[in-house]
Design a protein around this nucleic acid. Structure first.
Length: 348
DNA sequence: GTTCTAGAAC
DNA sequence: GTTCTAGAAC
């Protein structure tokens, strides 16, 4: 399959990879180098169809995005093909689209992928631009599946003995993402932090242990230290990567019944300003008791040696929409999103 | 987890 | 007619 590249015509930055059928939101951010306030941080939503050879361009921002001088219009969507020109906003910041053969399809490129994880005690931060709301997906989700034949690093490999944990199923996606250097924001000998692939707020990271822990049910008292460390790492990420950390409210916690396998701590800003937040389930999973505070999980482990999820927790996802800050009831997701603009920092 | 889409709600 | 949700499929 070919890959899709969005190329800045005036060479402002390197080409942006648009993964096949994956929504990518671009706008004013370090990634595009656009600082123009007329350009929203979420100006356009792009989705490439590498099979059909076009990208869908949806204007999210208020000011006009255009394709070949034709304004898309807020909320509208058009198709753009090779040879056409996208202007991010106000007929400025031109881009072209290019479909070309994926060089990573060759076997040699797979074997030269990053050997999994850092050496023991290694700690490093990768400062990714937070404005890029949908991090690019790995070109090869099977990378590191076998640890890399030449790897000499000492980090414990994920357990691959359980047949049910075969990579490739959608619910196993985190295992691939956490191994992908492009997704990693921080890693040390115990944990890795990645940006959520479909962030539900302006800032949304996942902290995952290298140790294979399928779910909250598998946690025991011996994991308390690890969970405390995950919390500390999360605190540091927020401080280091979020310039609004003083104003913007954050929460750290776990979904009671997560869809994705492998224990992951959500670190999420409470603005919930994201095009990826689309439905009631998304909303209630972060704003009801379906979201269990990290401290509460640690306390349960310390006290009971296990995490207990209350009966009926799944029903919380069906609750009526209700503002997490002021409690106001909203009848639809669009109305909720409009209301959330009155709480930009996620608190009163 | 997401995407797609039928049909409910407006 | 359009918007929005919710369930199936992946």
């Amino acid at each position: 399959m070919s890959i899709c590249l969005l190329i800045s015509k005036n060479g402002r930055h390197k080409p942006i990879h648009l993964p096949h059928l994956q929504t990518v939101v671009l706008g004013r951010s370090p990634e595009t180098t656009i600082k123009d306030k007329k350009c929203s941080r979420e100006q356009v939503e792009l989705k490439a169809d590498c099979n059909k050879g076009y990208i869908s361009v949806k204007q999210l921002g208020f000011n006009p995005t255009s394709v070949d001088s034709e304004v898309v219009g807020k909320g509208n969507q058009v198709e753009m093909r090779s040879g056409q020109q996208l202007h991010m906003v106000n007929e400025l910041y031109p881009y072209t689209v290019c479909f070309k053969e994926d060089p990573s399809n060759s076997q040699s490129s797979v074997s030269t992928k990053r050997p999994c994880g850092p050496a023991s005690e290694e700690r490093e931060f990768h400062r990714e631009p937070p404005g890029h709301k949908v991090p690019r997906k790995t070109e090869d989700s099977t990378q590191c599946k076998h640890g890399g034949s030449t790897s000499t690093n000492t980090r414990p490999e994920p357990q691959t003995t359980e047949k049910t944990e075969t990579l490739g199923y959608w619910s196993q996606g985190l295992k691939a993402s956490m191994q992908d250097p492009k997704m990693q924001v921080y890693k040390d000998d115990r944990v890795v932090v990645i940006m959520d692939k479909y962030p539900k707020a302006h800032y949304h990271w996942l902290v995952l242990p290298w140790e294979s822990i399928p779910s909250l049910k598998t946690l025991h008292r011996g994991h308390c230290d690890l969970l405390r460390h995950m919390n500390q790492v999360a605190d540091r990420i927020v401080q280091q990567q979020c310039p609004d950390a003083g104003l913007l409210h954050f929460r750290q916690g776990y979904h009671a019944i997560p869809s994705m396998s492998h224990v992951h701590l959500h670190v999420i800003s409470q603005d919930f300003d994201s095009p990826c937040l689309k439905n009631k389930k998304h909303w209630n999973s972060f704003t009801t008791d379906y979201f269990i505070e990290s401290q509460e999980v640690i306390q349960m482990l310390e006290k009971d040696g296990k995490v207990t999820v209350k009966e009926g927790t799944n029903e919380l996802l069906k609750l009526p929409l209700c503002c997490h800050v002021c409690g106001m009831a909203l009848s639809t997701i669009p109305q909720l999103k409009e209301h959330l603009k009155s709480h930009p920092y996620g608190r009163l």
